[in-house]
């Protein structure tokens, strides 16, 4: 009985954390001004949020064939989502001429002329 309750609590904690992650992702992707911040926020939802949802499902339902498929989805998403973020950021890095306006001032001063 007590084991069931512990399992339920863990499951609920995972799900609530995942909800927080997804809320952060949605808010960040819509409200941030600069693309790198947006991609970062979206990446949080795609990796950590998805992982926590799957973890809570596995905790709540036990490990069966369906959960194995879920694990494959997690592996796939963890491979692809960071790479897509990386490629997006790379395109932004190579094509945005005003990129250094988004760097903090004290960091910008530390950069050499050649970097800019």
């Amino acid at each position: 009985m007590i084991f069931e309750w512990i399992r339920f609590a863990l499951c609920a904690v995972c799900l609530i954390t995942a909800m927080i992650c997804f809320t952060a992702a949605v808010l960040g992707a819509n409200r941030f001004g600069f693309i790198m911040n947006r991609v970062h926020a979206g990446g949080v939802g795609d990796t950590l949020g998805l992982f926590l949802v799957a973890l809570s499902i596995i905790l709540g339902d036990g490990f069966h064939m369906g959960e194995l498929k879920l694990c494959f989805i997690i592996i796939f998403m963890w491979f692809t989502s960071p790479v897509s973020s990386h490629v997006l950021i790379q395109v932004e890095y190579f094509t945005n001429p005003h990129l250094y306006e988004h760097v903090r001032r004290e960091d910008r001063e530390a950069l050499t002329e050649e970097d800019q």
Partner: peptide, 20 residues
């Protein structure tokens, strides 16, 4: 100019993902 195909991250992950 816009070619990301020389990117090693994309290449390695593509090698793993595309056959699947």
């Amino acid at each position: 100019y816009f070619d990301v195909s020389k990117d090693s991250v994309m290449r390695k992950v593509g090698m793993l993902i595309v056959p699947c």
